[in-house]
Design a protein around this nucleic acid. Structure first.
Lengths: 359, 359
DNA sequence: CAGTATAGATGAAACATTTCAAAGCGCCCG
DNA sequence: CGGGCGCTTTGAAATGTTTCATCTATACTG
């Protein structure tokens, strides 16, 4: 590959001049400028990002650390981040942690040696990134946490309004006439699971409905967990008539359990998930869900990072994205309340329907 | 961050010695060696990947160029590649092309300036990577194409046995008693779509069944395309009793179209997709599909790359991964043939069932 | 014990940039 | 015509490694 030296020789100018032309870092008189540009064109020269990064003490890479790209919520997040990054000349290094704190640490430590422009992190379980983030910030690289936050996180963040989303979903079920609600939460050491549970509880409290401990089951954010915990819920007396699941994978497992138990959704049990994954549309019945845009989560985080890169020194920002309730076929009024509750009329046959989230 | 100079000073040795200890590139006597290691530990030193890459003329990065991480088939591929890369000390730079050849070219050109250890590429439409790949190879970096190949590709590749997979699926439908089969292929400039069509045709030819042109519709690999083309197929006379879809997204669209047309799957029309995405399990009816492991595609490609990196100079390898037929509820014997065809007994109520692929 | 081979340690060059201080140069003004 | 000023251009240093040629000291051989 041609290097700057070559270009300088071809164009008959000094090394510094080539650099100035390439980077627009100083005035260069037109004829000379043109000679350089021509040489660049002719040789197909592209500056070495390595040398550039080494010298500038910063590269155009952005580290993206996520639990697992295979989890259907994350690809959109990554894509959002990549799109914004790409169109601003940045590239993404993708790292999967499997929620393993050690793996996260390995990535955190190694990525720093690439002098990335910043980091977008979906923290693993029990992360404490404060020290690491501080070290990145000292090196002039921003760190944005998204989706859920480590304990004591004081840096930039972008998350969905989990509490409001859960609240709206729960309130909707209550308005349909449900009185015996249950929830299957994600791991409660994760802030997003906590917030969703909080939203659920607030809606219940507001209606003076009780949440007995066994009606709030905690599990991992996956199908298997949802399946196991739903089986437990279905054995409770009285049996819940509606379940709010911490995410769509849990809801999917619950759906399976409901079917296995010989019950029907939504006739016997209503079900609402969270995330509004693509698959929510294809389940049988199709799954109602609190919709959050993973893509937007990614773009917002990347933009925040780039603003910091441009020199934004303002105090830590906590951006919250609104959710919307996507109604499909997995919800219905409870059987005994179908006729006598006024909210029943809200039951919609429409495949999708938006309920504006709390402002 | 501490650099090598610091370590040398702390340990009281020369720069070169530190390097040799860190890289095991030369014998260093134990006491000195230990002093260096202690200093590294104490300072939390990590070598700059930038400087190292610049000097070694090669980094530990692998470029991964794919159409769109949001397409549900690709996350597993990426994850497979990342797992093998990670456990060998390599990191992945993820690039989405949206099947846009220009975007692909931008990535191809820029990635080279990072001096990556190699490239894993799912080529975009109409790619001709020969020249680019040659330039990478000259720089000592391997290029592996996966999933589908550019025209005239002569380098390393890993693909599924698309032809056999399609053949088996089609043959299965025929054995069930179907005689009027149709297919909705992906874009026929893509080799995987071509091969799947070829497998379909071979099975038809073997049974002396005709494939009239209008019974083989071509479209993009997505739901919308499948939907549109299925509507066309459903209007044909005689109407096909089974459709082999070029991938699961197409099948999904077809499923929608079948439902819209007031027909039932599998009673009126059987349907088989390709890829066996997670969602195939959740559709209604659940979708039969030719299963290929995206994860394995990724791991195999990464391993191939690393072998090249270790100096394997053997001629281009073309690895082919076997597929298996995953039977679910979207297939049934055709109504009129339900009783009188011997193959009918193969119809299984089992949710999943493997049919060994052609050896 | 002298001479030599050899393992071990070192210092400097090289990788491809950016950037800063300094030099060159034309031009205007006195 | 000389001095000074401001715009261009240049050359060199610096970034953090690796590696190669040297150099040193140690052990071995005759």
């Amino acid at each position: 590959m041609a290097n700057m030296q070559d270009i300088a020789r071809i164009a008959g100018v000094s090394l510094g001049t080539v650099s100035h032309v390439v980077n627009n870092s100083a005035r260069v008189r037109e004829p000379m400028r043109k000679r350089v540009l021509d040489a660049v064109q002719a040789a197909g020269y592209q500056p070495s990002q390595l040398a550039r990064g080494l010298r500038r003490d910063k590269t155009n890479m952005i580290g993206m650390i996520i639990p697992d790209i295979t989890n259907p919520f994350f690809p959109a997040v990554v894509r959002g981040a990549e799109d914004v990054a790409f169109s601003n000349g940045y590239r993404l290094i993708l790292c999967n942690t499997d929620n393993d704190h050690d793996k996260e640490l390995i990535h955190l430590n190694e990525l720093r040696t690439y002098l990335p422009a910043g980091l977008i992190v979906i923290p693993s379980n029990f992360s404490d990134l404060t020290a690491q983030a501080e070290s990145y910030r000292r090196a002039g690289a921003g760190v944005v946490c998204i989706d859920r936050l480590p304990t004591n996180w004081s840096g930039d963040s972008v998350t969905a309004d989990n509490e409001a989303g859960a609240y709206n979903a729960t309130r909707y079920l209550i308005q349909l006439g449900h009185r015996k609600l249950a929830t299957i939460t994600g791991p409660l050491h994760l802030t997003n699971a906590q917030e969703r549970l909080a939203g659920f509880k607030r809606a219940m409290r507001e209606t003076r409905l009780d949440v007995a401990p066994e009606y709030a089951q905690e599990t991992s954010f996956d199908k298997r967990g949802g399946h196991a915990k739903a089986l437990i819920l279905l054995r409770l007396i009285p049996r819940p008539t509606a379940i709010f699941a911490g995410n769509d994978m849990i809801a999917l497992g619950a759906l399976l359990a409901i079917r296995e138990a010989g019950l029907r959704c939504p006739e016997d049990i209503s079900l609402i998930g969270f995330d509004d994954l693509d698959l929510a549309e294809f389940t049988n019945p199709s799954l109602s869900s609190v919709s959050q845009s993973g893509y937007e989560l990614g773009t917002t985080a990347a933009r925040l990072l780039l603003e910091r890169r441009e020199g934004d020194k303002s105090p830590a920002k906590h951006l919250t994205l609104q959710t919307s309730l996507k109604l499909r076929h997995s919800v219905a009024p409870p059987k005994q309340a179908a006729e006598d509750h006024p909210a029943t009329k809200m039951r919609s046959k429409a495949k999708t329907n938006r309920l504006a989230p709390k402002a």
